[in-house]
């Protein structure tokens, strides 16, 4: 199902302290596509993702999954948070954490067990059901968090800087894992990241946001075919797209080419940096 982001805008607070986190933003993620969302800190990329997840209400505009407007966490959409340490329930074993995700779907026990097993196998953690999260390394915990997202067999997976807190080697492994999972589970994926290399490496499309206020400034297609940690990053297409995104992200916000800025009203004009 396509995911339509239509004129979405988010203002935090109201009155004189109101802060525009994300200005009117529209784009569509086609079914099966892998997009990454990048931008400097304060560009509203996490805010955007939380709205797509139905965890945050847009101030204006709306998001549709297929033809269904999103008003709360929709079925078939799974979220992976950055902070796996806090997002896994520490009082539950890995198995319980995963089966918890299926609780809302009221599936038969055997089916839940099968899915838990399959999800753990998919992230290469088969047989770890009885462990508690604190008995695992950071990279393993994040893989558990990803497996939990897979248990609902989602059509859309939303990831909020899922790899920001793991070491470089684990990170490279997890990038490939996420790509493999996208194919295996046939998902649409949107991943927020602050790492430009990563954004270009994993995605079919890179959405670039600028900060203060957060807004969409570019939508860059990436045509790379099958990824490989060794060779992909040396390909001309990768180098070109990477440079493109890099320039956009690093460019001072004032000179960016957001043409729609002028027609916006009600925006708090002096946004503190």
């Amino acid at each position: 199902m396509d995911l339509h982001v239509e004129g979405v805008k988010k203002v935090y607070g109201d009155g004189p302290t109101a802060r525009l986190a994300l200005d009117e933003t529209s784009f569509t993620v086609e079914s099966g596509q892998f997009i990454s969302i990048v931008g400097p800190s304060g560009c509203g990329k996490s805010t955007l993702l939380m709205m797509m997840a139905g965890l945050l209400k847009p101030t204006a505009g709306g998001i549709r999954l297929g033809s269904t407007p999103i008003s709360g966490p929709p079925p078939g959409v799974a979220v992976v948070f950055q902070d796996y340490g806090r997002s896994l329930f520490p009082w539950m074993t890995v198995g319980k954490n995963l089966s918890m995700a299926a609780a809302a779907d009221k599936l038969p026990k055997a089916e839940v067990a099968r899915r838990v097993d399959e999800a753990l196998t998919a992230v290469d953690l088969a047989g770890t059901q009885a462990l508690y999260p604190w008995q695992m390394s950071g990279g393993m915990q994040q893989r558990v968090a990803i497996a939990r997202a897979l248990v609902v067999e989602p059509t859309v997976m939303l990831m909020d800087e899922p790899l920001a807190a793991v070491d470089a080697q684990t990170r490279a492994d997890l990038e490939d894992l996420v790509l493999a999972l996208r194919d295996r589970y046939d998902m649409t994926v949107a991943m927020v990241t602050h790492d430009i290399d990563e954004a270009v490496y994993v995605a079919d499309r890179v959405i670039v946001l600028a900060a203060h206020p957060g807004r969409l400034i570019a939508d860059i297609p990436v045509d790379l075919g099958r990824r490989d940690q060794l060779t992909t990053k040396a390909e001309p297409e990768f180098v070109k797209r990477r440079a493109e995104v890099f320039t956009l992200v690093r460019r001072p916000a004032a000179t960016s080419s957001a043409g729609s800025d002028a027609e916006l009203d009600g925006r708090p004009s002096e946004l503190k940096a």
């Binding site: 290469d124 009885a130 008995q135 393993m140 684990t170 490939d176 099958r226 990824r227």
Partner: peptide, 23 residues
């Protein structure tokens, strides 16, 4: 388990293997 993945990522480093028993 890894080989069942379509694009077969490299196996995780040995230190990252899942312990199957309680400590």
């Amino acid at each position: 388990a890894t080989s069942t993945l379509t694009s077969a990522p490299p196996p995780p480093p040995a230190g990252d293997k899942a312990p199957t028993t309680r400590v």
